[in-house]
Nucleic acid binder design. Sequence first.
DNA 1: GTAAACCTTCGAGTCAGCTAGAAGGTCAAG
DNA 2: CTTGACCTTCTAGCTGACTCGAAGGTTTAC
Lengths: 133, 133
Amino acid sequence: MRISEVTAHSGVPATTLRYYEQLDLIRSTRTTNGYRDYAPEVLERLSFIGVAKKMDLDLEQIKWLLDVTETGTCTNTRDALHPVLTERLREVEDSIRKLEELRVVLASSLEHVATCPDSSEPCQSECAFKSLA
Amino acid sequence: MRISEVTAHSGVPATTLRYYEQLDLIRSTRTTNGYRDYAPEVLERLSFIGVAKKMDLDLEQIKWLLDVTETGTCTNTRDALHPVLTERLREVEDSIRKLEELRVVLASSLEHVATCPDSSEPCQSECAFKSLA
DNA sequence: GTAAACCTTCGAGTCAGCTAGAAGGTCAAG
DNA sequence: CTTGACCTTCTAGCTGACTCGAAGGTTTAC
């Protein structure tokens, strides 16, 4: 397949495909005229990358997973995926906890701002955030 | 106060103070020798900035809030803060929802990976992510 | 008097994941 | 034969919030 066909099938822009190749996430051979030539398996790879990206894994982690998957057995893949996903799950749960805290602070700030004494006089600065400092 | 004193009291690095000044988040006068001279109020301002940053407001929003706070009355401050915090709350709640979804997907992926048939034979690639593609 | 500690500006570098543009080669249709 | 669609490489830019280094001036302590 030529690069435009891969784009058509995967939705991944040609520039991004070249970028991924630069990072060794995907590979291609060359035709006689120098054009990139992709094996159909690249589509599976791109789909894997897409899913992994949705899990907020970065490209370096994804490359690592692809490398292990490619060179290893299912056992290896499983052994590789498990800690990565576990770690990512921990991070996501962490983010959720922090955002929950932030949500509470924001909600109470809104409360504070809403009940802040109205006055046409200039008042002391930062009053809206005073309870949070 | 000189810049190092502000750093000592606030914990904000001197380079960052200069950067903030460049963005008009804080101000300073100059001594005869050209050194920056800070009024004590800068510490309140930095504390405000710190709190606002914890709420994931970006520096542009923070500058805007500081400007309104400085030039206006409490009413203005309140009127300014309310929509910003409301919007931020909406964003945070959005992020929480998305991360919750991701958490569920990650947990079920982990489940899938854990129960993936063990084999010393090489197996079909991407099996661990197959259910998610 | 000199060394250390402080201050200045300016420009560039960092992170990730692309994206865009220039300058040029290749190929199929009309 | 030329137009237009496709392909190539290379370089540079984008986002935000810093951070660092060079090259130099100032002040303080001994």
